[in-house]
């Protein structure tokens, strides 16, 4: 399904990077403020799907040159991986770690939680699924 409107095409070109960046931001800050992997992933996926509508399948492919299943694989793998690692250290499944480290040019300590890696996995899965489903159904339509 493609909507061929020049306005949409051009505005999408502008909006897309911002949206994708915002999606990443929403995911990263999710631990502290509204947001998180699901929301970030959905925003990301929606953006890509809208881009596909305005620019066509090939453009989407250029933007994301992998089959969505790879994203699903990576996402699930990341989530499972972060959950399994504590097991190897003799801790229960999914045990999270929290800590802080200082970035070179920042006075604020960067607060991290291992759960964020998990959240990244969630995001990847959501992107993969959202994009995958819409792509598949659009292809059926074409």
């Amino acid at each position: 399904m493609t909507i061929s409107s020049p306005v949409l095409r051009n505005s999408m070109r502008l909006i897309l990077p911002i949206t994708l960046l915002y999606a990443m931001y929403a995911m990263l800050k999710g631990h502290h403020e509204p947001g998180g992997g699901f929301i970030g992933g959905m925003i990301f996926a929606t953006a890509i799907c809208t881009y596909r509508m305005s620019h066509g399948a090939l453009a989407q492919l250029r933007l994301m040159p992998v089959h969505p299943r790879v994203l699903i694989f990576l996402g699930l793998g990341l989530a499972l991986g972060t959950s399994v690692i504590p097991l190897l250290l003799g801790e229960p499944f999914l045990r999270s770690a929290v800590g802080e480290f200082h970035l070179p040019f920042s006075s604020h300590p960067f607060h991290y939680a291992s759960a964020m890696a998990f959240d990244l996995g969630v995001m990847l899965v959501v992107v993969g699924v959202g994009v995958g489903m819409i792509t598949q159904l659009s292809e059926e339509l074409e």
Partner: peptide, 15 residues
Amino acid sequence: VIGFAVMAFLLSLLV
């Protein structure tokens, strides 16, 4: 999220 997944599958099934 789960509801969305099921919904999406159901719609594809309908097609």
